Amino acid sequence: MTPFDPASRAMLQHFLASIAYRTQKALRGAPESFGDFRAAHHVRTPYELLWHMTGVIGYARTFLRGGDFAPPRLGSLALEIERFHATLEGLRDDFVDPSLRASITDIQFLHGPLSDTMTHAGQLAMLRRMAGSPVPSENFIYAAVTSANVGAAQPEPVAPDGWWRPNQAPQPPGPITEVPEES
Rank of each mutant, 00 (worst) to 15 (best):
A30Q: 13
L114V: 05
R65Y: 00
T117H: 02
G66H: 01
D68V: 04
A70F: 09
T62E: 02
T105S: 15
H41M: 13
T62V: 03
D68K: 06
A125W: 01
A39E: 12
S115M: 15
F69K: 06
F84I: 01
D36W: 13
G75Y: 04
M126Q: 06
G122Q: 07
T62W: 08
D93W: 03
R65E: 13
R128N: 02
I81T: 05
H41N: 10
L49Q: 13
G35L: 12
A131Q: 08
V135E: 07
Q123P: 08
V145I: 15
R92A: 01
Y47P: 03
M126H: 09
D93L: 10
P136L: 07
G132R: 14
S115E: 14
I141S: 14
R92I: 06
G122M: 06
L88Q: 04
H85M: 06
L91M: 01
F84Y: 11
G112E: 11
I141T: 15
H42C: 13
L64F: 11
H85L: 09
A70C: 05
L64E: 04
W51M: 06
I57R: 08
D93N: 14
G58I: 03
R101A: 10
N139D: 15
A121P: 04
L110G: 13
L127S: 00
R73D: 01
D106I: 06
G66V: 04
I81C: 09
L124Q: 11
L91S: 08
F84K: 06
E32G: 11
D68A: 06
T119R: 14
M53C: 08
F63G: 02
S137H: 12
T54S: 12
G112V: 03
R65N: 04
Q108M: 14
I107N: 12
S76H: 08
V43G: 12
